[in-house]
Structures are given as structure tokens and as C-alpha cells.
Simulated assay, not measured.
Amino acid sequence: MANNTPYTLVTNLKYWLLASGGLVVGVVLLYVSGLPWFEDHQSFGALTSQLGGLLIASVALATMWDLVGRRSFFREMLEVLELKQDIHASGLTSIGTDYRKVVNWDDCLGSAKNLDIFAAWATTWRNSNQTNLQQLASRSDAKIRICLPDPADPNCIKSLATRFNMTQTEARNRLSEAIEGYKKLDANGSSTGRVEIYTTPVFRAFTSYRIDNQFVVTLYHHKDNRRGSFPALTCREGGSLFAFFEEDLEGVLDASTKIYP
């Protein structure tokens, strides 16, 4: 599509006027350098000839840049700016393949007031952050909500067993252990109301942790071998990613069953 904005037209007109003027001056200098007077003043003749050639070469290079280079550079910068705008709108703050490194868990959990956990069981994560989680649960102004699969739902257990390549009994035991483990965060099992546990038959497509005004999300493998790295990202409140994960989490919690306290 042609660009007919007045500023662009004026800029292009100025460029072509200057280029035409430079070309004319260059040709004139080359012509003048061949006059008889310069035969007796060879140094001036050589200088005039070189200046003329330089002007002509400069105009040629500038024209090539304007016709090809500048437009290519502009398109490249436009792509970068559009990508930056997309990232800003989404609220994405970091991304990687190791959920342990996309965020500083000690800092986040150490200062958090609200933590929501949406996971299959997150046993490794819970054990790694046991001290931080217990300290968080001990603060009177803090609250932890955990949403786990329903161990009493046969379809849920079957799906988990298939996804994580284990027997249904193993999956049910993992869930029971996770529920008891999260209960112990609450003053070692004495209900304070600061730890809430919910169960739902919703199939997990990812694991998410909402820590105050940010989400940490990790994805799952779909291959038989579950080992390896997992894509992980963080996003801030105010972005489209945060809005999606927040709406998704709240929708699941609204349809879940509260089993503790």
C-alpha cells in the first residue's frame, strides 16, 4: 500500500532534490576538471575530479540505501516493535525451560500474601519450597489455596495414571500424600483457615502458581517419557496472559469441592 502521508512526501521530495543537486554538482566537477586550465594546475584538477567522482558515488549509494536498505531496515524494526508490543500486552515477564529458574522462589514466596496452587500434586516443588511455604502459612495476613485432582473420581485418576505413566493406585496414593502434605503446612495440620484445599476432576493441561500479582506456569510433556525440561513462563497482572490464567483458575475453583478445612 502506498504511503501518501504529507511528512513522507515532503521528506522524499527533499531527498530527491538533494540527490539530484549532488549528482549535477558531481558531473559539473568532473567536466570542469577536464578543462585546459587544469592541465597547468594538475593538483587542482585531480582534486576536482575526485570530488566529482565522490559526489556521484555518494548519490548512487544513498539512492540504493533509500530504495532497498532503508525500507528493509524499517520493516525489520517494525517487526521488533510489534513483537515488543505483543509481549507488553501479554504481560509476559520471563520464559524458559526450567520452572526453578524462571522466578526466584525464595523472594516470591518470602514476601507473598496470597498463593494459589493449581497442579496434579507438585510434590517436588512442595518439598523444595517446604520452609517458605510453612513460613507463608504461618503469617496471619497470608492465605494459600491448593486445587488438586479429585482422588475419588475414577475418570480423573485414570487420566492422571495415563499422563504420568503409572498405575491408578499409584496416582491415587500420590494425591492422598499431596493432600496430607499440604494440610501439614497449616500449623502442622491444625486448622487456622489460612490453608484451603480443593479437589476437582478437571484434567490438568498445565501447572500454575498465582503468587500475588503474577502467575508462574509450567507445561506438560505429551510423550511417553516424561523426563526432560518443561516450558515455563511468568506473567504479570494487567496482561492478557494473567487474565486468562486467572479466569481459568477462578472458574475451576468455583466448580471445585472444598475438602479442607
Results as ranks from 00 to 15, higher is better:
residue 104 N to D: 12
residue 111 S to H: 14
residue 70 R to E: 07
residue 70 R to L: 10
residue 68 V to F: 03
residue 105 W to V: 13
residue 65 W to N: 08
residue 85 Q to P: 04
residue 68 V to C: 00
residue 85 Q to E: 14
residue 86 D to Y: 13
residue 101 K to T: 15
residue 81 L to H: 08
residue 100 R to Y: 06
residue 87 I to F: 04
residue 68 V to N: 01
residue 69 G to Q: 02
residue 98 D to I: 10
residue 87 I to W: 03
residue 71 R to I: 12
residue 79 E to P: 00
residue 111 S to W: 08
residue 112 A to Q: 03
residue 80 V to Y: 02
residue 106 D to P: 02
residue 81 L to Y: 07
residue 64 M to P: 00
residue 108 C to H: 01
residue 90 S to T: 15
residue 95 I to V: 14
residue 104 N to P: 03
residue 110 G to I: 13
residue 109 L to R: 06
residue 84 K to A: 14
residue 89 A to N: 13
residue 102 V to G: 01
residue 109 L to M: 08
residue 108 C to W: 03
residue 76 E to V: 15
residue 110 G to R: 06
residue 69 G to D: 07
residue 90 S to K: 11
residue 99 Y to L: 05
residue 115 L to C: 06
residue 102 V to T: 07
residue 72 S to A: 10
residue 82 E to P: 04
residue 65 W to E: 09
residue 116 D to E: 11
residue 109 L to H: 05
residue 68 V to T: 06
residue 114 N to C: 02
residue 106 D to F: 01
residue 103 V to W: 00
residue 76 E to H: 14
residue 96 G to H: 01
residue 86 D to K: 14
residue 113 K to T: 09
residue 73 F to D: 08
residue 92 L to G: 06
residue 70 R to I: 03
residue 113 K to Y: 04
residue 71 R to E: 10
residue 67 L to K: 01
residue 110 G to W: 10
residue 66 D to T: 13
residue 79 E to Q: 11
residue 70 R to M: 06
residue 108 C to T: 10
residue 83 L to C: 06
residue 88 H to I: 11
residue 84 K to S: 14
residue 92 L to K: 02
residue 77 M to N: 09
residue 90 S to R: 07
residue 116 D to H: 05
residue 91 G to S: 05
residue 67 L to P: 00
residue 105 W to Y: 11
residue 67 L to Y: 01
residue 92 L to P: 02
residue 70 R to Y: 08
residue 73 F to E: 09
residue 78 L to P: 00
residue 84 K to G: 08
residue 116 D to T: 13
residue 112 A to M: 01
residue 116 D to L: 12
residue 73 F to R: 11
residue 68 V to L: 01
residue 114 N to R: 10
residue 69 G to T: 10
residue 74 F to V: 11
residue 111 S to Y: 12
residue 91 G to M: 02
residue 112 A to P: 02
residue 75 R to E: 08
residue 113 K to W: 00
residue 79 E to D: 05
residue 112 A to N: 03
residue 102 V to R: 02
residue 99 Y to V: 13
residue 90 S to M: 12
residue 83 L to G: 04
residue 105 W to H: 14
residue 68 V to H: 00
residue 96 G to K: 04
residue 95 I to G: 06
residue 74 F to W: 03
residue 108 C to L: 09
residue 91 G to T: 04
residue 73 F to L: 14
residue 70 R to Q: 10
residue 116 D to Q: 12
residue 79 E to F: 09
residue 93 T to L: 11
residue 75 R to L: 08
residue 99 Y to H: 03
residue 105 W to Q: 10
residue 88 H to R: 13
residue 110 G to H: 09
residue 88 H to D: 13
residue 67 L to A: 06
residue 95 I to Y: 02
residue 109 L to C: 07
residue 104 N to Q: 05
residue 116 D to R: 11
residue 71 R to V: 13
residue 97 T to G: 12
residue 105 W to D: 12
residue 76 E to Y: 15
